[in-house]
Structures are given as structure tokens and as C-alpha cells.
Design a protein around this nucleic acid. Structure first.
Lengths: 210, 210, 210, 210
DNA sequence: GATGAATGAGGTTTCATTCAT
DNA sequence: CATGAATGAAACCTCATTCAT
């Protein structure tokens, strides 16, 4: 009687085999695409399964429920984003170029990393209301963003002419996020490069007093 | 059996009696509150009707469906917001106070007008995906915001040190919106007044070069 | 929120498994019975599902709505009817018996094939008002009936003493249909065999002048 | 305490005043038209009231429910029909014209009296399933029709060459009803006059052996 | 009396999730 | 294991009928 040997309690499979991993991935990809195209609520599990080329039954052996894939998509999205930003930061620090250049590159990088998730981002904030876990994930993502912004700013701390660094980080992070979002989402009538130029201008003036 | 598509035309009730107007209003109020508290998708028509103190039947004699109230709430929300901003602009223009003061007041006003719609705002952008009409309404709201920002900036045009006014208006509008949103929504760990101070700082530096 | 009209396309299930086919059939059978017993409007989808021993959900995975099963029932009904008539025609042509006998057998056959659909038939004509598709199906059924009558009459064309064969076919078809209906539905106080005898008499006199 | 003087129990008003009678009539007319256009189930009380130019409230002070107007419409329809037929019979008996002429006139008269009720007739038979009272009314209408046919046939009894008069009356009544219905409803591709000619032919051959 | 707003039971329909095959 | 059929709770919506004004 070695029943306790394995906890049958964990419903969803932890993929160990290659095929299994591939299937799981296919589902996440499909879900990501559909959520981003039609939103969470207008996407149903049947559609996700179909788009991933599996049966609804299979879907439920990889994920406990719809929310579960959503969290996964969220996670992956977040990690991809952060990795991209981190890479950019590392590159920029090394190069030690002038401030305007650094900010400009940073923003370009953000625009690039945002692009694949057009509109998905917007759905996210709406989902905060729906679920405690989602709220926490989003808040921790937000925190990470804010922290990274702060650290990034601290790299040039002695050149900054702002007094309240912490608050500034929030303001910068929000401004950049929203303008980048607007650029990616389709610029409200004004071409992307002009928006980007002004955003950089604003940040340079604000942070370095010209 | 709706092939011979009857033009019933007597669909939603046009209020003739006083009571009717009150009921309709109660429904809109209730819907606004619930949408803002729990989001659109987690609110159902029964709940809205109950919260308004009416039957589901009544709900459907004033609105064709949930989306219909949503549009109404959106409209009212938008109008209230714009009226508030317009009033502030009028007041500020008259007073002719110094630039930092003007911006600071403006932002304070935005914070005030945003507050009743906490989190509702976030839902909206997600809804763009779901519906053409909503998309149009939101886009026209966005346009109005951008245009007002532009006009507001033009009031001090000769003092501005930005080259691309149009792009600047977008950048300013987005930045202000998102930071105000963050402030109202609960400041990401940093007190509201500090965020506000930095936002004002950023705008002053950017727009007037100190 | 159905403006962006999604082509879900995976609407009604196309049976792949055996079980599926059985379920679909059970639903159609149940629907046919209930429609015939209580009429279309007094039968609801829940009742159909229950009578078929399935859930409402299942009902909707096989049919888009109540009208959809109705069309199916109509189709099956019609086919069964026509097959029965065709078989009788084939049999009669072969036997080459005398005219009165042929007509008598034909009518007997119609009575037999009508019987399982007692009263269902009556509902149908009322439904013409409700739906374009139903109108078309019924009209095409009617046409088929009229055409078959015409062909049947043409088998004995040289013995017929009617001038306007086409009009005669309509008159005969209508008369036979309505009297058979009355016989099956319960003969208005007069026993079935007497009605049948007179109907045959009428047709023989009319078509062959005694 | 003269409460018993008047039975307050009869909810619906018995119109004694002129205006009252007019209103009631307007409702019945409106109902008749709508039922005939769209069928009983696709017509709602609000529509009937609106079409009659009264409020839904008023509707319910003249009729206990929707079924109640239906019965009224049915009654009036039936009476109008019978009166028309009776008038025709009276006229024809007097004139004493030849048999073919008599039948031809009779049928013409039926076509005339049917016309205003196009398609309404079809709804009726479907309603038999719905309601005991309706069944009884329809059955008694049917009986009246059959009886009248019988009487009409008896006027020329000594010329008839049918043996089973009672059954013949049913057969004739059904045949005439259904062909007239078809003519009025739009002749299934064959012009009305040709159908009528054949119908008359059939009856003459059957009843008088040429 | 007349009005039309309000009611709510009852119908339709969807879809996340389970489970027999 | 995979499949997709089955489930049913929960949402949506209608309309005959009542009732306050």
C-alpha cells in the first residue's frame, strides 16, 4: 500500500516529457493570441483548445481552469518583457553613451518588446478586479517595473536634478508606459517617431534639466 | 423564428412620466457603481436591476441589454469629466496665476474628477476589443482629451519651449492621465502629494524649461 | 457585445461518434413527439431535452435553437411521407389493377403514412407566417405533392376526362389531403370507412366520369 | 349594504356606452389584423393595444387576457362567414338556377368571404392543441359548416347520385374548404379561375354524375 | 376610467468543466 | 492518455399581466 508515495491530489500534469511540454506551450501560445485578439471574456476554452490543436479534455489536463492559462500567459508575458528590458539595460550601461541616447534607446526597446502584446496589456488592468491572484501578479509586475525604473535612474543619480527619486520613478514609469502603449497601439493621429521624440525630450528636460 | 425581422420599434421605453425618468436614472447609477466595483463582466443585469431597486423586466424596458447601459454610463462619465475639466480651465484662465500654479491646479482638478470612477476607467480600454461602438466612443473621448490638452497648452504658447506641439499634447495627455490614474487608484506605495509634485515638476520642466 | 460578429463556426456539433448520432436522433424524436402532442409553441427546449434524456446544453450543441429542430422534424416527416407514397405508387403501377382499386389503395396508403403525424400537420401551415425558411420548405413540400399527384394522374392520362390537368392535380391534391387529414384526425362524426368510400367515389366520378 | 346588488366579480367591463363599444371593437379589429398578419404567438398585447390606439391597461379592462380576444376574433370571424354563406344560400335558392351555376356561385361566395381572413384560418387549426375552449369553438364551427353543406345538398336531394349523404357532406365540405383556401392563399402556381373551374367540375360530376 | 410603468415567472442560450469511451 | 460528448448552473431576455398614479 504505497498510496502516499505519490500525491494523486495534483490534478494538472507537470509535463516531463517533450511532447507534453510542447502541448502545454501550444495551449499557452494559442491562449495568448486569442486573449490579445478578442479579450479574455470573449475567448472560450473550446476555442483555445481548438487553436492549440488539442481537445478540451486535454486542455484541462494541463490547466485547472481558464484563469489558470491566463495566469500563465501573464507570467510569460511579464518575463519576456523584463528579460528584454534587462538586456537593454545591460547593453546601455556598458556603452555609456550620452543621456539622451540612453533614454532614447530604452524607449525604443520598450516599444519593441511591447509590440507583440498589443492591446493585451489593456485587458490586464481590467482583470485586476476579477481575481486576487491576478491583482497580486499585476501589482508585483508593476512594482518590478517601478523598481527597475528607479535603479535605472540611480545609474545616473549624480546627474539627476530631481529631489524625490522614488516619486519620480513612478511618474516616469507611468508616463513611459502609457506613451509607449499609445505609440504601439496606434498613435492617436500623430506618427510614432514624433511621439517618441517628444517623450524623450520630456524625460531629458525633467530628469537632467536639459 | 426571427427571420421576418419585425420592426417592433417600441423597444426601449422613452420616459414620459416622472417616475420613469427616475427609474432610468436609478438603473444607470446602479450600473455605474457595480461596473466600477466589480467590472463589466462580473456584473449581471439581475444585479443591476436589484441594486436599482427594480425588476429585471424594468431594466429591459429601458435598455436593450447590458451593453446599452454600459454605453450610457460611459457617456455620462465622459460628460461629467469634460464639464469638470472645462470648468477648471475657465477658472484658471481667468485667474492668470503663474504657470506652476496653473498646472498644479489642473492636475488637482483631474484627480478630483477621476476619483468617482476609480478603476472604471481601466475596464474601458479592455472593452475596446469587444465592440465597435465602444471603440468609437472611447476614441472620440481620447480625441477630445488630446484636443483640450492642446488648446490648454496653446494658451501659453509663447512661453512654451517645445517644438512639436501636437506630439507634445499627446505625450502630456497620456502622462497626466496615467499618473493621475495611478494616484487615484492608490499610489503604488508612494503618497499622492509626492507623486503630484513630481508630475507638476516634470511638466513644468518639459513645457517651460524650468 | 456581438458587434464584431465572430464566426465561431464550431456552432452545432457534427456527430463523429456513435453516441453523438444517437443523441441527436433522440432529440429529434422527442421533439417530433412533443410538437405533435402539444404544438410548437407549447413545447420548450427544456422539455425536449428532458424527453430525449439529455441536458439542455446537449440540445444546444446539436441545434442552434428550437426552430432548428423543428426544421429537422419537418424534413424527416416530409421524407418519410414521400417515401411511403413513392413505394405505394411503385406497387400500384406494377399491379395494374382497375382504377377504383388504384385510387382506393392510394388513399389507404396516405391514411397510413399520415397517422403518425396526427395534428402535427395542422401546426405546420400556421408556422408559414413565422419564418421564411419554413415557408420555403412547406411550399416545396406542397409542390412535390402536387407534382406527384400530376404524374400519378398522367399514368392513366388517356382515360381521364378532365380538360385542365394541372388545375385538376391541385384540386385533387387538396381534396385528398384535407379529407385524409380529417379521417386521421378523427372523422367529424362520420366513420373513416364511409368517408374514404365517398372520397374514392368523388375522385372516380371526377377523373373518369364514373 | 347592497353589495350583492352587483357582482363585482366580473372583471371585464360589459360595454354599455357607445365609446366603450367602439373601443372594444377597435381592439378586436386590431387583434384580428395582427393575428392574421403575424400569427397569434408573434403578436403581443402591447402591439394589439397600440394598434387599437389604447393603453395596455385598457386592453385588460375589456378582455381578461390575450386568449380572450382571440376567442372574440374567432367568434366574429365565424359569424361573418356564416352570415355571408347564409345570404348566398338564400339568394341562390330563390333564383333556382341550374346546378353548375349554383355551385359556382356558392364557391365564388366562399372565396369572397374567405379573402379577408387570409392565412388566419390556418392559424386556427394549430390553436386547437392549445386550449379546450378553442377546440370546442373550432369543432362547433366545423360542425356548422358540415351541417350547412348537408342542408345545402339536401335542397337538391332528388338529383344527387351519392348514396351516403352524410359522408359526402364531409368530403365536399373539406374539399371545398381546402381548395378555396388554396385559391385565396395564392393558388400554388395555377390561376384562381382554373382552380375554381375544376373544383366546380369535380363537384358537379360527383354530386350529379355530370 | 385610462394610462403606461413595473413585475417576475418562464423561456432561451452559453460555456466552463467533467467524464465515459 | 486523448477525446469530445454531456452537463447544468447561470446568464440573458420577453411579455402577459397587475397596479400606482
Amino acid at each position: 500500500m504505497n498510496e502516499t508515495e505519490e500525491q494523486t491530489a495534483d490534478k494538472t500534469r507537470k509535463p516531463r516529457q517533450d511532447r507534453s511540454i510542447k502541448t502545454r506551450d501550444a495551449i499557452v501560445q494559442a491562449a495568448a493570441r486569442l486573449f490579445s485578439e478578442k479579450g479574455y471574456h470573449r475567448t472560450n476554452t473550446k476555442q483555445i483548445a481548438a487553436a492549440a490543436g488539442v481537445s478540451t479534455g486535454s486542455f484541462y489536463s494541463y490547466f485547472t481552469d481558464k484563469r489558470d492559462v491566463f495566469l500563465d500567459v501573464l507570467q510569460i508575458h511579464s518575463e519576456a518583457m523584463q528579460a528584454h528590458v534587462d538586456a537593454t539595460v545591460a547593453q546601455l550601461s556598458a556603452k555609456q553613451s550620452d543621456k539622451r541616447m540612453v533614454i532614447s534607446h530604452m524607449i525604443e526597446s520598450l516599444i519593441q518588446s511591447h509590440t507583440p502584446y498589443i492591446s493585451y496589456h489593456r485587458e490586464l488592468s481590467a482583470m485586476r478586479l476579477a481575481d486576487e491572484t491576478i491583482r497580486e501578479m499585476l501589482d508585483s509586475q508593476y512594482d518590478a517595473g517601478r523598481r527597475k525604473t528607479l535603479e535605472f535612474m540611480k545609474l545616473s543619480e549624480h546627474d539627476l536634478c530631481v529631489s524625490d527619486l522614488e516619486a519620480a520613478a513612478v511618474v516616469v514609469f507611468e508616463s513611459v508606459s502609457s506613451v509607449v502603449d499609445r505609440i504601439v497601439f496606434s498613435g492617436g493621429g500623430v506618427p510614432a517617431d514624433r511621439l517618441k521624440a517628444e517623450l524623450v525630450d520630456m524625460l531629458v528636460h525633467y530628469l537632467f534639466g536639459e
